[in-house]
């Protein structure tokens, strides 16, 4: 879907810039997990006004971020009628994460999954170069 791709690209560019600003005053990150924690806490709070509710990893480069009340879905969360629009709402946030992580040196693929709005899961697969 062209629209989804575009939105993802916009998010990517914004994520690159935002993360540059947000990490300007923080000490250097220790490792990958340190970066993911930063995304779940500081980054998420500035952008979505709350922290990620749950972060899981298989320790092999796959991370799952779960937000039980994702800010961008709250408006359309009543009932199932807007479910088909969810991918369009999530393309930008996926790009945002991908842009932020790529600028921090982690190239990845980010996908989103919704089963019950406004809860949402983002899966991040780190690409090893």
């Amino acid at each position: 879907d062209k629209c989804v791709t575009r939105l993802e690209q916009l998010g990517y560019r914004v994520g690159q810039s935002l993360v540059e600003r947000f990490t300007k005053d923080s000490p250097r990150f220790k490792d990958e997990l340190d970066i993911m924690k930063f995304v779940c806490k500081d980054f998420w709070t500035t952008v979505y006004k709350k922290q990620v509710d749950n972060l899981r990893t298989n320790h092999q480069g796959v991370y799952v971020l779960q937000d039980n009340r994702f800010r961008l879905l709250i408006q359309i969360a009543a009932g199932k009628q807007y479910m088909e629009y969810a991918p369009k709402y999530l393309a930008f946030p996926c790009g945002l994460i991908r842009g932020a992580l790529s600028n921090l040196g982690m190239n990845c693929i980010v996908t989103a999954e919704v089963t019950q709005m406004p809860a949402c899961k983002f899966q991040i697969i780190i690409q090893k170069s």
Partner: peptide, 13 residues
Amino acid sequence: ELFTLTYGALVSQ
């Protein structure tokens, strides 16, 4: 910042 940057990305797109 999110607002400003998002608008910027939109314009450049």
